[in-house]
Nucleic acid binder design. Sequence first.
DNA 1: AGATGTCCCTGGAAGC
DNA 2: TGCTTCCAGGGACATC
Length: 271
Amino acid sequence: MPELPEVEVTRMSFADRIAGAEVRAVHVGKPLRWPLGCAPQALVGRTVLAVRRRGKYLLLELDRGVLLIHLGMSGRLLFAPTLPAAGVHDHFELSTGRGVLRLHDPRRFGAVVFVPTLDDPMARKLLGGLGVEPLTEAFAPQSFHAQLQKRQPAIKQVLLAGDIVVGVGNIYASEALFMAGIRPTISARRLSLARCVRLHAAIREVLSRAIERGGSTLRDFSSADGQNGYFQMEAMVYGREGLECRVCHASIKCLRQGQRSTFFCPRCQKS
DNA sequence: AGATGTCCCTGGAAGC
DNA sequence: TGCTTCCAGGGACATC
């Protein structure tokens, strides 16, 4: 399940290599989450200028237009000089002068959408509601606190919504809340400034550490250069229901919030 | 408008 | 062993 770290690691693994490449052919497999938004053939002849990231979206900037790529939860990008013939789960492929970029996505929650510019309505729909980037200066403790003050739902769900801060998915939300000592069920508006400061730091810590480790959470994650240098994350709480807390040895609990599983330590994390 | 629930999809695990 | 059922998850969308 790619969260921000996995998307960023993927980006870094091929951005420099694909920059400047001209598209020579396009292959489209089964439908993804949304239609491509242009005829595949229309991409031929365009040049990839850069690969950027916004939240969990990759932005493949072309000399004319942008391809928005989302990995959904089972998506994986590969970029290599050559690749074997496309299989049943390979749903989008750009052949370029520098290699083949392929989206492999068994569950097809992913998306590849062409937009002429980022002002395009579709681009605005997908990117417009996103919160600040957690690893930039725009993510500041005071404003984070001020935003949370306006939200009634549980802090875990507010983090997942992604409209205050992007990139914190189900796994890292549980981990960051553990690191900050905050119970996932507490209403966001009830968090003191001091606790928001700790949560802010925890989110940055968890995400940046995961990026350093090469995208850590995934059992099946590999970056676009095929490095399966993934680590099974040293999760403190995620997926550890019934096991001992690594800090206090209490039994880790699991509950459902908005159809998602949340893991926490009942002793380390206070309401 | 804010909060909550539903759905998309399929591989793998668990249950019978 | 082979079937069925359940679960995972991001996030747009529908509904209250």
